[in-house]
Amino acid sequence: MTLPTQDVLALIPQRPPFVMVDTLVSSSDGTTLTTLLIQADNVLVSDGKLSEAGLVENIAQTAAAGAGYTVQQLGTPVQPGFIGAVKNLEVFALPKVGDTIETEVKIENQVFDVTIIKGKITCKGNILAQCEMKIFIQPQQ
């Protein structure tokens, strides 16, 4: 489902200056799409490019935005998540300041508080990075 533009900060636990998603484009059937405009003042930009760490964090925050959207629809609070493992990370290129990246995350498996996702980042039709990630969701207190 395509979503109206909304405040992504309501969907993720991260706060500026460590926010690596701008817009939640869509989230349904275990697939979430986000965008991020790479800005020069981004804390994970170095030498005019978003770093590998920024790409990994962007995938994780895309997963968080999808999870946040889902729980928001259920009327429950957004829970913090933690990257437990990154597997098969491939970085083909780093996006430059001024580029808008598009990130797609698909849930592969979910068991209790652990979610396994596959993430892919593209820019102008080219794949920049992809990986699998294991994310642990902190249970409600």
Score class of each variant (00 low, 15 high):
G81H: 03
A85R: 13
I83S: 00
T31W: 08
P139G: 15
E132Q: 08
G48H: 08
L9E: 02
G84N: 04
M20I: 09
I107C: 11
T103H: 07
V8W: 08
L3S: 03
S27I: 12
T122N: 11
I59R: 01
V56G: 02
V78A: 01
Q138P: 15
G48D: 05
L128H: 02
K124H: 14
A129T: 03
Q141A: 15
V56K: 05
P16E: 04
V114M: 12
R15G: 00
D99L: 13
G30V: 13
P17W: 03
N58Q: 10
V78S: 05
Q61H: 10
Q72S: 13
I101T: 14
K120H: 12
G81Q: 06
I117P: 11
K134H: 09
V86D: 00
A53L: 07
V86A: 00
A10F: 10
V111Y: 10
I38C: 08
L55Q: 04
K106L: 11
K96L: 13
K124W: 05
I135S: 00
Q130W: 07
T122W: 08
T35E: 14
F112W: 15
L50A: 04
E104A: 10
I38E: 07
Q130S: 02
S28L: 10
E108Y: 12
P95I: 08
S51W: 06
F92M: 14
A60R: 01
V21I: 14
P13F: 03
F136Q: 08
D99W: 09
Q140C: 14
L74I: 07
A53V: 11
Q61P: 12
